[in-house]
Design a binder for these strands. Structure first.
Lengths: 190, 190
DNA sequence: CGAAACGTTGACCGTTTTCAATTACAGTGG
DNA sequence: CCACTGTAATTGAAAACGGTCAACGTTTCG
């Protein structure tokens, strides 16, 4: 059966599949098949600036949906790339839209999802407006955003990875964070 | 009658009011009354970083809705402040939610709104990942984001206003933009 | 008319970027 | 099981870019 708000969709509306690390789930400009549920693994939605830098517009982890916004647009606006071997559920776009037409409860769930995303982006914007690299990194860690590797974490914060490494080690030195392992840091519990 | 997707709401669901420049539409932490339609003027949704910098999370102009996301949360997550004398329409939250329950078409409209916002934020994130101030400013102008004053434009881009002034005048000097008037720039049409 | 806010430009300082090099892993195939 | 390869983590040093402070011109609005 489909996860949480999608339980009223027939099983035929979804397809299971797997991708190896580095494979594309979809590409910029492609016609949207629908949205996805990430059963296991890690998928990044990525855009590229003109100068070629990859910007992780969103990082999805096991148990999360992604590409909900594509339900309402004519083409994907970014690339989606599996970062590790990932198990996915593809959820059919037109059947989802049809369900929204008939089931208002479901529509509201979708809206709630999107509203939360808007709030998350606002928070990210706020984070990105913190000038000091150290404070920015600390706030991001406090928000639980240090998942996956530090390269993509740094890109999400709009800092070079070297700067993030330095900020993390300085924060650890100042005992504002604790280093758990190579590349793993944690807030200091109090 | 209410604008576009809200036409099926009774007139009693909305209230007209005006605010002078600097007045709050709502405040961080307040219970959401509903969303707003900006008939005329300019309203910014603003958050404040710990260090006190104001971050314009969203800038709303005449003819636009704002605070749609507050339909789905228990408190406002930012301040909303009129930047100029503004005419507003307050749209009742519970009546809007009730309409979503009964009118799936309307729910879909709301979702579409939110989805567009998500896309806009992704674009902004991409912009903010452009390292060079000059290129960042140019892209933002190309996207039509240079409205209102340059102070808030700069804050939205995550740059100091001085840097934005300099970038603009350098871009004009290099004929990549044209200066129309004090503080007004335009893409060079070709 | 005067004050306040915005626009503009200059100079200097500091942080982050960049380039570079080194170390630590994880996966791969012999 | 181990060398081999690629990618991520880490640290150093120098340069560059943007931030900050400061001053001044200009427009707006009460």
């Amino acid at each position: 059966m489909l996860p949480a708000p999608f339980s009223s969709l027939p099983n035929s509306a979804s397809t299971n599949f797997e991708l190896h690390a580095g494979a594309y789930v979809f590409r910029l400009g492609g016609k949207p098949f629908g949205l996805f549920f990430l059963v296991d693994g890690e998928v990044h939605l990525i855009r590229h600036t003109k100068s070629g830098d990859a910007v992780p517009i969103h990082r999805a982890y096991a148990g999360e949906f992604f590409a909900e916004a594509s339900l309402f647009s004519d083409a994907y606006h970014c690339d989606a790339i599996a970062q590790t071997h990932s198990k996915l559920l593809k959820i059919d776009r037109s059947q989802t839209l049809a369900l929204m037409e008939t089931n208002p409860r479901f529509s509201i769930e979708i809206s709630t999802y999107l509203a939360r995303q808007v709030q998350d982006y606002r928070r990210l914007l706020e984070l990105r407006s913190i000038r000091s690299a150290q404070e920015r990194v600390l706030s991001a860690v406090a928000d639980g955003w240090l998942k996956g590797n530090i390269l993509s974490f740094a890109a999400q914060l709009g800092l070079s990875h070297e700067t993030v490494y330095r900020a993390l080690s300085d924060l650890a030195k100042a005992k504002r964070l604790e280093k758990v392992a190579r590349g793993k840091f944690r807030m200091i519990r109090r």
